[in-house]
Design a protein around this nucleic acid. Structure first.
Lengths: 218, 218
DNA sequence: ACCTTTTTGGACCAACCAGTCCAATAATCT
DNA sequence: AGATTATTGGACTGGTTGGTCCAAAAAGGT
């Protein structure tokens, strides 16, 4: 589960040629790009070639293909919706929701997220079931965003600006309402471009619906 | 794109051994089960063995693996939400929505849909992008259901029982709100079981939210 | 009986892949 | 200059795969 031994296994001295940090960087970079583009199926030789490195050098740093993939995923679970972090408790909820909606829609309809999900799926399918990586990815990605948004909602509830008795449920529902079938279509490679008008309509609908449902009772 | 020539290519007579229709059935059946279970990666030999048939026999009926997969998918795009078809225009919308919600949630959290989507994804990834099959699948599956539901909503709007100016948007949003992250988690093999309580809460939330948003103005 | 077609089993091919091994070379230490 | 380690290129193994080929057997029509 852990990467191969670091340099200088024995304490006394650190003699000999020093490992080139650029190599590792190049390997993970190339692997990342290729895994995203072609899924787990890319050959190690292809990765090595793209990284400008001998295949053996990869196996010096990562004992197995799965580990290399793990390293790529680990550096890639940070799909963040900045608008959630920037949500100000004193701002108008409608504005906050609108900002989150727009950013999330842009994300869901973008190329990057489709590639990432496809990459995860290709690994999960190959492994025959759920891998720990999928779990970690989901926790660091979608779940974290949902949690943060739920926390915002909970604070607004406390303050009395919104009425959100079950913040997690409301948060996931809001995201789901925004998403609809966008991500799944995106993952399957259908309709890669969305008109700005459609996205705006979706955002407006979701925000208005959410506010109607969670307005604090008058 | 089309399957290999049917028996009796020449008009005059139909002599010789007759092709066993059971074979084709067995092949498609085995292929279906195996594609669902292991994705597009299953070997043709495995399929042949499972069907109790020689590999050549498969290639007599389907000239390529892709075509066999196509046949499987074609016979499998009928993921239907019966509650939508059974929706009665004179019934109470709340009851109709609740029935649809329950059935859809059961579907989204079930094993079958996860396997089907995984199968489609595995093919899409292998093909490097969108295949026509994905398109066909989406059109016959999710989109058809959404359209039917939207049609129901449009009728309710006409009748004046609901206020749904944009039925497609409302329909997709309702489905998305119900779904949340269920399908994606299901596809990745995380949290395969859901408590009846959670599902009921989700259904209640979505139905109530929808009705609040689309109640006809008093 | 003949002819025709399907089905079979299995050999076979060319290609691909993860991972190993090795001898040579390059960089960095004492 | 040695000793030590990193890196390279390439050969190599053992395995799998989609797809083809073929000769023999089975099933049906005339």
């Amino acid at each position: 589960m852990t990467e191969t031994a670091a340099s200088c296994p024995s304490m006394p001295a650190c003699r000999g040629r020093k490992p080139d940090p650029g190599k590792r960087e190049a390997i993970v970079g190339a692997a990342c790009a290729l895994f995203l583009e072609q899924g787990y199926g890319v050959s190690m030789e292809t990765i090595a070639a793209a990284a400008g490195v001998a295949k053996q050098t990869i196996y010096n740093l990562f004992s197995t293909k799965e580990q290399l993939f793990g390293a790529v995923v680990a550096g890639h679970s940070e799909i963040v919706v900045a608008a959630i972090d920037e949500a100000r408790d004193d701002a108008e909820p409608r504005a906050v929701l609108a900002a989150i909606a727009r950013e999330l829609l842009g994300l869901l309809s973008g190329e990057r997220i489709a590639k990432v999900y496809r990459m995860m799926m290709s690994a999960a399918i190959g492994a025959g079931g759920a891998s720990e990586m999928c779990e970690q990815f989901y926790d660091n990605g979608p779940r974290r965003g949902t949690r943060q948004f739920a926390a915002y909602l909970a604070r607004q509830h406390e303050i009395g600006r919104l009425n959100v008795p079950d913040p997690m449920l409301a948060a996931e529902s809001f995201f789901g309402m925004l998403n609809g079938h966008i991500l799944i279509r995106n993952m399957m490679g259908l309709q890669s471009r969305w008109s700005e008008k459609d996205l705006a309509a979706k955002a407006d609908y979701a925000v208005s619906a959410f506010l109607r449902n969670h307005a604090r009772p008058a």
